[in-house]
Computed example of a mutant assay.
Amino acid sequence: MKPPKTRFSYVYEDLKRRIVSGQLQPGSKLPSSRNLCKEYNVGIATIKRVLDTLKSERLIDIQMRQTPVVLSQNLKSPDGFTIFEQRDSILQVYETYGRLLPYLLVSAAHSRPMDTMPHYRQAQKAAQQGITPESWKALIALTRDILSASHNPLLCDLHTAFELQGNFSYFLEICALSLDIMPQKPSFEPKAIMEVLSESNPVEQYYHLQALYQDMYDIILETFTQMSDSIPQFSPQVPATFEWNPLRGKDYY
């Protein structure tokens, strides 16, 4: 039985995963210490220890009276072979994501007007550029905003777990194979996704989201199929257990 995680270890490991996975990009700013305290439900002393540790590992830079900034050092994107070794686990993550997210987003999307979400205008502007890494970053940020609007932090934590273990940044921003397949799916046009997220009819929104995430799963599956053609020897699977402990470091009431 694993020992329970301390609040420090939970916050440290979560922020580090978000940086190393590319969810927090080099050059981007971390939330303020006050917002991190609120997000993780911990005291300022814990956040200060976490930030000092990340700084000592050269993952972030901290200047006096400024928000910490993510550094590019020590960041390594996963290669295709490493991803391919985890294909079964990754496909299960996307299948589960597609089953849950339509319900969760429909419920959360009607908590407040879409155009008041923090990343709405950024996502709207990025969607005009078509399928680009920038548009995916903005759309994922808007998805987090929508889940946050439900005032249920469990949903945001779960989505973060999906992002990290589904290697979103790799498939949506780096992998040439998946980026080539996406234009074949009209539902994956960023403008179309913005329309779905802004849909006022919850029933219509649900069915459109269901189709969108089925296409997402199909894109990842086709990406792995094309990868297998370029990898001469069948790669043994490296099982990756999906971990999401909703009580890590937080009290949800």
Rank of each mutant, 00 (worst) to 15 (best):
S72Q: 12
G22K: 11
N167D: 09
L142I: 00
A176T: 13
K29G: 09
I174D: 06
D218L: 14
Q165D: 08
T96P: 01
H119K: 09
S148R: 12
I174M: 10
F234L: 14
I19H: 09
F188N: 08
P232E: 10
Q63I: 05
L71S: 04
P113C: 03
L51T: 00
T82N: 11
D115S: 01
C37R: 10
F224T: 08
T82M: 09
I193T: 06
C175M: 08
G27Y: 09
S198E: 01
Y94M: 10
H119Y: 11
C175G: 09
P4V: 14
S235T: 03
E163P: 04
D251R: 10
E95A: 15
T67P: 01
Y94N: 07
P78N: 06
D215Y: 07
Q210V: 06
Q129E: 09
P31G: 07
K137M: 08
P186E: 02
S77I: 05
Q226H: 14
C37L: 00
G130N: 11
K2R: 15
V93T: 10
S72M: 09
E39C: 10
K5G: 03
Q214I: 06
S187H: 11
A176S: 14
R58G: 00
Q129I: 01
I83R: 14
I62W: 01
P153L: 05
N41L: 13
P113Y: 11
M1Q: 13
S235F: 01
G43T: 13
N245V: 07
T132I: 07
Q226K: 13
T223Y: 06
P68V: 11
M182D: 06
M182R: 14
M1S: 14
R58D: 10
E134C: 01
A176F: 11
A126V: 00
L147M: 08
L59E: 06
P246Q: 08
L197A: 02
R112E: 12
D157H: 15
N35A: 14
T46Q: 02
Q233W: 12
D180R: 14
S187Y: 09
A192H: 11
M227L: 13
N41I: 08
S77N: 04
S72L: 08
I174W: 06
A109K: 12
L164W: 10
G27W: 09
S135R: 05
V93A: 04
Q214V: 12
I60L: 02
S200P: 06
S32C: 09
